[in-house]
Design a protein around this nucleic acid. Structure first.
Lengths: 270, 270
DNA sequence: CTCTAGCTTCTCATATGATGGGACGCGGGT
DNA sequence: ACCCGCGTCCCATCATATGAGAAGCTAGAG
C-alpha cells in the first residue's frame, strides 16, 4: 500500500487513503478505534476521523457498540453486485456440491484476474478440517492448480502475457520459481488434461484442477479439489480428475456452453 | 446521491464521487463507458477518467474487453470480509436449505441495519420462479416480514428508536404507513410469534418471518419464507411458521445460543 | 468525588492536491 | 475522405482536503 506507485499512475490521494482504511479494517480480525487507524496508516486523527465518518455515511464501515470501526455491509452489497454478472457461481454450485460428496474433499471455483486467481466459491465436506481459504481471496497463478488449469488452456499469447507479469513469489520449497519451469508444467497439464498443485502453495496441501470452458472453448474459470497430501495421493489423482471433468462438463452445460463439442473431455488413466 | 447532505455532515468530495461511480456501475445492468459515467454523474470526462483509473488500480472496477467499466472483484473480496464476522450466515445455511425443501418456497436470512433490513442469504426452491431479491440488497423495515420480526422482539426503546427513523415509504396499497399502525402490527406479531408481510412490499408477494435470537434472547437476524400469495395462503401460515421456528431454533443451537431456554418457542395453531 | 489519560469530535487558516478546460489521437460510420 | 464520439493526457487555477490544535468525553485510579 505505502510503496511507490509503478510509474505515471493516476492518483487521487483521498481515494488511496480511503481504500487503505478499508484494507486495514479488512485485514484486522477485530474492529479498530480511530486512534489505531490513524496510527497504522500514519494519518492525522483529524483526517482519519473525517474519512471514517464519510465511509460510515456510505455504510462502507460501521461502528460497533463501543465505537470501534469495522467493514460495513454496503461492501457486501457491492460485492454481490460485482459477482452477479458471473452467474457462473450460482449455476456451478450444485455441481460443486456433488463433486464434494463424491470426493469428500474441499472444492473451489476460481476466476483469473490479472496474474492472480480469485476464489469465488468454496464447498467443504462436512467432516473435513476447515480450509484456510476465504471466498473472495486471491492467490498467485503460478502456485495454484486452478491458476495452472486456466493458464494451460488459454491461447498462447494471452498465457504468455500473464506469465510475463508473474512475480514468482516462493510459497513453499516446491513452488515453481521460473517462467520456464512453469511453461514445462503447463505442457504437462495440457497433456494430462488436469492441473496439479503438489504442495506448491502450502506445505501438505495437494490440489488438482480443470478449467471450465466457454462456448469458444476458452477457460473462464477453474474448479479444483484440495486436500491434505496424505489423503489426496498420487494414485487417486486420475480418479479425482474424472470427477472434476464430469463436474465442469455439467457446469458448462448449465451455462449454455456447447453441450456437444469434443476436446477437453473425459477419461484420463495414466 | 446528488441531494443535499442532512446537515453538518463530514464531506470528502472525492470519496462521494468515487462511491457515486461505484453505485452507478452497480445499478447498471451492463458495463458503462467513460462518457456515460461522466454524463450520468455530471462529472468532466477528465475527472471521471481519473477516478476510474484509480478505482481500477484498486480493482474496485474492471474493464471489459471493449473498454467499458464494471464493478471489480476487489469489492467481492471486501464484501466477504465484511460478512465474515457474521458467521451466522454459514451456520444458518443448512437449516435454510431444510426449510426450503419443507416449504418449497424461497427462504431469506436478513440482518437489521439502521432502519433497513439487509438480506445476507437466500435459498430458492429448485422449481420456483426466481425471486427478485438480491443477496446484499436491503429494504425498509416497515414493509418486510423480516423487519417486523426483528423489530417486534427488540427491547422497546431500541425498537422505538428505529421506528422513529423510518420514513414510511409506500410500496404497495397495503404498506403500513404510520408509526402507530406499525406498533399495532408489532403487537400482533409478538402475540402470534411470527411476522407477516401481506403484499406490503410487493403486490402478490406474501412473506412470513421469525427472529433468530441470541443467548440474551435478543434478535440478531430473521428468517423468512416468501412466495406468491396464491401459494402462501392464510391457512398455511401457521404450518410454515412452525417450520420457521424449528429452523431458527436449529440456527440458534448451531450458533451456540442457549439450546435450552424457553420463550420464543414452537407451536402455533391459531 | 476529582484528576488524569486516552480517546473522539470539531474548527479553521493554509497550501496542497484535485479539478476541468482543452488538445490530441484513434476508430467506425457515412 | 471527413466527421463524430470516445478515451487519454497535460497543466494552470483555485476549490478542497489537510492537519495543528482546542475542546469534549469517558473511564479508571487515587
Amino acid at each position: 500500500m505505502r510503496d511507490a506507485l509503478p510509474q505515471g499512475t493516476y492518483k487521487v490521494q483521498a481515494l488511496d487513503r480511503a481504500f487503505a482504511v478499508l484494507d486495514l479494517l479488512g485485514e484486522s480480525e477485530t474492529p479498530l478505534g480511530l486512534a489505531q487507524v490513524a496510527a497504522s496508516l500514519q494519518l492525522h486523527k483529524s483526517t482519519a476521523h473525517r474519512f471514517l465518518m464519510v465511509l460510515e455515511r456510505h455504510r462502507m464501515v460501521e461502528r460497533t457498540a463501543n465505537g470501534k470501526f469495522r467493514l460495513g455491509l454496503r461492501l457486501f452489497d457491492f460485492g454481490n453486485r460485482a459477482i452477479e454478472q458471473y452467474d457462473l457461481r450460482d449455476r456451478a454450485q450444485p455441481h460443486l456440491r456433488r463433486l464434494v460428496t463424491e470426493t469428500e474433499e474441499t472444492a473451489h471455483l476460481a476466476l483469473l484476474e490479472a496474474a492472480r486467481v480469485i476464489y469465488i466459491d468454496k464447498i467443504e465436506p462436512t467432516r473435513s478440517v476447515r480450509m484456510i481459504t476465504r471466498i473472495g481471496a486471491s492467490n498467485p497463478v503460478h502456485c495454484t492448480s486452478v491458476g495452472k488449469a486456466i493458464l494451460a488452456f488459454l491461447p498462447p499469447e494471452r498465457a504468455a502475457d500473464i506469465i510475463r507479469r508473474i512475480r514468482f513469489e516462493r510459497m513453499t520449497s516446491r513452488t515453481i520459481a521460473t517462467a520456464e519451469a512453469l511453461r514445462v508444467e503447463l505442457d504437462k497439464t495440457r497433456r494430462r488434461g488436469y492441473a496439479v498443485d503438489d504442495e506448491e502453495l502450502e506445505e501438505g496441501l495437494r490440489c488438482i484442477a480443470v478449467p471450465v470452458l466457454d462456448a469458444q472453448r476458452l477457460p473462464v474459470a477453474a474448479v479444483s479439489v484440495s486436500g491434505p497430501s496424505f489423503r489426496v495421493t498420487a494414485q487417486k489423482l486420475p480418479a479425482i480428475a474424472n470427477h472434476l471433468l464430469q463436474c465442469v462438463r455439467g457446469i458448462s452445460v448449465d451455462m449454455g456452453y456447447v453441450p456437444s463439442g469434443r476436446a477437453a473431455r473425459t477419461v484420463v488413466n495414466a
